[in-house]
Amino acid sequence: MGEAKRRKKNDPDFGKPKGASVLERKLDLLQKQMELRLEEIRASYQHKGNMGSNVEEVIREFLREFLPPHNRIGQGEVVDFDGNSSTQLDLVITNEYHPYLNDLTKPSVFFIEGIACVGEVKSVLNSNDFDSILRNCLTYKQLKVNLQDGMRTFINPSDLKRFVEKRPYFLFAFESQLSLSTLLEKTKRFNTDNNLDFWQQIDGIFILNRGQVINFGDGQGTFQFADHKGNTIPGLISIDIEEDPKVLFGFLSWLNSAMPRIEIQFPILMSYLMKGQIPINAGR
């Protein structure tokens, strides 16, 4: 009996809820499969555009498996009530209120109020790619969400500005030519140079062969990072792959915390079709 107990305590899943350990093992396996899939795509396609399209579809398939059915997965541009638009986005995740206007097999146009989250996908991230992504993120974060009167949210108050009044933006890459520390420093410098508040910044960076950089905002949100004394730490935190190799698990954990539940009274298209006639938040 004593030996059995010792073996159980040496198990890395000892003390975890069974469902959590099963999910971690599944995601570990999927992460390995993604890495192999990248090698297969490289061997099959010489044209960079074909390679990129296939890599993006790998992530879309993953998200379709792990997100609820109302989180439809597409690609394209996001527009707001004032006619502003994002750049072309590799991943667009809708919420339950987005109308079924879009053919998700090709790039489409989406309305910001119907967006849960967006992201960019790279097979191999380079410095120019990353600079463009930070600029594209800022363009996206400048879109205005039409907040209806009577709207209800189920979210930590700290995350309201970042994930409801704005919508989250992430980068997912299989490999990076840049180290995680370089990605962190470039992000900090971009945020400082442009005097960006937390809600204007990129929210998450996930690199399968490097690790994660997660923006924890003011440190009081739903998703928190604590030091060894239990104190929460705000801002950008890098988690190297050698410190925690479970990048896919971290990505899914962050994604679920960054897409809060909301309730609205009117279909979002009404505000576009009948400008000025649908009650919206006066503080918009």
Rank of each mutant, 00 (worst) to 15 (best):
S127C: 11
S127W: 07
S127A: 14
N128T: 14
N128M: 10
N128F: 07
N128I: 11
D129K: 05
D129E: 12
F130I: 01
D131G: 02
D131T: 09
S132T: 14
I133A: 02
I133D: 11
I133M: 14
L134C: 08
L134N: 09
R135Y: 06
R135N: 05
C137K: 02
L138H: 15
L138V: 02
L138M: 03
L138C: 03
T139E: 11
Y140Q: 01
Y140A: 05
Y140D: 06
K141F: 11
Q142L: 06
Q142Y: 12
Q142T: 10
Q142I: 00
Q142G: 02
L143T: 06
L143V: 03
L143Q: 05
L143W: 07
L143P: 09
L143M: 04
K144W: 03
K144P: 03
K144A: 09
V145R: 13
N146G: 10
N146L: 14
N146A: 15
L147N: 01
L147Q: 08
L147V: 11
L147G: 01
Q148D: 14
Q148W: 04
D149V: 13
D149R: 13
G150R: 01
G150L: 01
G150I: 00
G150K: 01
G150F: 02
M151N: 00
R152W: 05
R152C: 11
R152D: 13
R152Y: 13
T153H: 12
T153W: 07
T153G: 13
T153R: 02
T153A: 14
F154P: 02
F154W: 14
F154E: 11
I155R: 02
N156F: 00
N156G: 00
N156R: 09
N156P: 02
P157S: 12
P157L: 08
P157D: 09
S158A: 15
S158V: 06
L160Y: 07
L160D: 04
L160F: 11
L160H: 05
K161Q: 12
F163I: 00
V164T: 09
V164C: 01
E165L: 12
E165A: 12
E165W: 12
R167T: 15
P168M: 09
P168D: 13
Y169K: 01
Y169H: 12
F170D: 07
F170G: 09
F170L: 15
F170A: 10
L171N: 09
L171Q: 05
L171V: 13
L171T: 07
F172V: 15
F172P: 04
A173W: 08
A173K: 05
A173G: 08
F174L: 14
F174H: 08
F174I: 14
F174A: 06
S176R: 02
S176T: 08
S176N: 04
S176K: 00
S176Y: 00
Q177C: 01
Q177V: 04
Q177N: 14
L178C: 00
L178S: 07
L178T: 03
S179K: 07
S179W: 05
S179E: 12
L180V: 12
S181T: 13
S181Y: 10
S181W: 09
S181L: 08
T182W: 00
T182P: 00
T182S: 10
T182F: 01
L183H: 00
L183M: 06
L183T: 03
L183I: 08
L184P: 00
L184M: 03
E185L: 11
E185I: 09
E185G: 02
K186M: 15
K186F: 06
T187D: 03
T187L: 07
K188H: 13
K188L: 15
K188V: 08
